[in-house]
Design a protein around this nucleic acid. Sequence first.
DNA 1: CCCGTCAACTGGTTGGACCAGTTTCCCGCA
DNA 2: TGCGGGAAACTGGTCCAACCAGTTGACGGG
Lengths: 240, 240
Amino acid sequence: MDFDPAPRLSVSDHVFGRLRDAIVGGAYPAGDPLPSERELAAGFAVNRHAIREALRRLQQLGLVRVSQGGATRVLDWRATAGLDLAMTLTTAEDVLPVETLARDVLEMRACIGADAARLAAERATRPARDAILEAAEAYADAAPDLAAMAVADLALWRRIVEGSGNIAYLLAFNSLTAGTLAVGHVPAHRRTEELLNVTAHRRLAALISAGAAAEAERAARGLLTAPLGSDTALIDKEQR
Amino acid sequence: MDFDPAPRLSVSDHVFGRLRDAIVGGAYPAGDPLPSERELAAGFAVNRHAIREALRRLQQLGLVRVSQGGATRVLDWRATAGLDLAMTLTTAEDVLPVETLARDVLEMRACIGADAARLAAERATRPARDAILEAAEAYADAAPDLAAMAVADLALWRRIVEGSGNIAYLLAFNSLTAGTLAVGHVPAHRRTEELLNVTAHRRLAALISAGAAAEAERAARGLLTAPLGSDTALIDKEQR
DNA sequence: CCCGTCAACTGGTTGGACCAGTTTCCCGCA
DNA sequence: TGCGGGAAACTGGTCCAACCAGTTGACGGG
């Protein structure tokens, strides 16, 4: 939330961003060889090491496959990239439909959040349950400051996911919440309505703490799922 | 599936693996500064550039935070690492309870698989539905070769996730299936029982193709969820 | 026409130098 | 004695130049 004006992104960061966008955007078709490191270095007017560091990160993301002797080839990111790719796509790119991506993230959030709530109710330890209740209270106390509530809401969900004891859910939660995408590009009205529902949040925490798995799951899903009227109706309401 | 004996992992790969395991394993507590690049280079007896490439990858994974001038600090991976971390943890580490991780991955697979089936039934395009049906047939044709069925099964699920139109699900699917973890460390009997259920797979594909969202979701969940008897019962059965 | 060989690629690694921020500590001033 | 302020000693960031190690492809001999 702090205003971090100019992170002074390094040369290799810059190269990384450019290449990532180019690949995801389709400028380099899957299967095609990337220009050689030396060519890229000349093209970006930077040292080869900077290129190499950027390529390592692209490799880590699953966007390219480098092999000694042979050329570095572009992979089909739809088949090889992991969820962290969404994490790095922080800024609204032209390369990908942002609205669709936001919808997708919300859907996944609902899916995992509901199951995490169920699991937390089933097997969260005593201190974990207490942490959830505490976080729910902290969330309620944050009202009506919307920004503070958003932070507290995220903290509460983190407690719930932690309480589920599922590491995969925890890591996926990190992936979804990292970057400004999830937080920034979601329609404000959608978040607002959910955020203001203090009662539902409290009830969810209580259900989890009480070990009511099925009810907790249902409550979580209700909280995380947009009303059937969907965006158009909500937008209309907001524009009034 | 090819036997790739010695991928000749590069120096920076080696350093990356070592540091990753050390961090995830807790050898470097969160918040602590990592040794300087020069120290690490001396310690590993490699050039500093190799260390830097490894650190870039760790940074990409969300395990460390590097800042010019200051020391590179270890992050709390439980709070900052994304789902791709699970992807890189291919070998059975001592650093993390493998059995728990396998269970977690299976749970997430069931959660996402079921929702993806639902969404695919709701909004998959005509060619996408055909691809799912095709993949289901290919899967059935692979019987009774278990290895081939496993591959075809994965292909079928990929089609389903693709049909859901949810990019986040697709990326998460990649994260979960990449690496030998998901495939390798799952109890064999659990997979076998699921793999042999050709009828259920065919039915799932038909439901999706027919647009029966609720039924498809239920079928998918049934296919992906281990029977209530859980491991002990199955292990007993297998040992008989 | 085929096949081996070698030159010209590709990425991998090294060493050293220097730039650019941060942190530390010590010295001089109040 | 206490408190700045500034230099020095860190940290990571970047560059250059060279060489090692695989891969690829073209060229020439069989």
